[in-house]
Amino acid sequence: MWGYLAEYETPGEILHAAEQVRDAGFTKWDCFTPFPVHGLDNAMGIRKTILPWIVLCMGLTGLTIAITLQWYVNSPYTQSASLYVLSGYPLTISGKPYWSLPANVPVMFELTVLFSALTTFYGLWTLIRLPRFHHPVFSVARFRRVTDDRFFLLVEAADEKFEAGVSRTLLERTHPSAIDEVKD
């Protein structure tokens, strides 16, 4: 057995159940909902994600790349022998300076946004470990309604606190509309 899956019909019920499972000291458990239920993060004690910090770092990386790139490419100061590998192409346009920051702002901004957005995208999937096409909960037929109108709470058998009979009783006390055993 992989765990117990309890089904609820309203967000209120699952919020209440999540608090009880959290207070019982479980660590390997999760809720599944058709939409983000407000307050469930707190009820489950989910720690804040570090995603924004990763995005900030990569955004700043994008900004740095944009500045360095433009400086390399259009500034004559990069023509020294040591940097010749990526030698630039300074152009004289209307006698304007080769290197003036305002002209480089748009590209700096765009690369910051581009790097941040792609990091958000790939960072999200990395943090939540998706794509993952198989998961034991999918073996429960009624779990299909998780993307429609049902709310589920899973307690994994791998949890230290897990004891088949006791855990089932705990879940039963939260008044679920059904409890299923999740097979491996």
Partner: peptide, 24 residues
């Protein structure tokens, strides 16, 4: 991508969505 509506996923998902909105 095998989305299963897990609360731990929603939490990060919402943050990511908000970040993308802020960037867009």
């Amino acid at each position: 991508l095998g989305w299963r509506g897990a609360a731990r996923h929603w939490h990060r998902y919402q943050k990511a969505y908000l970040l993308l909105a802020g960037l867009a």
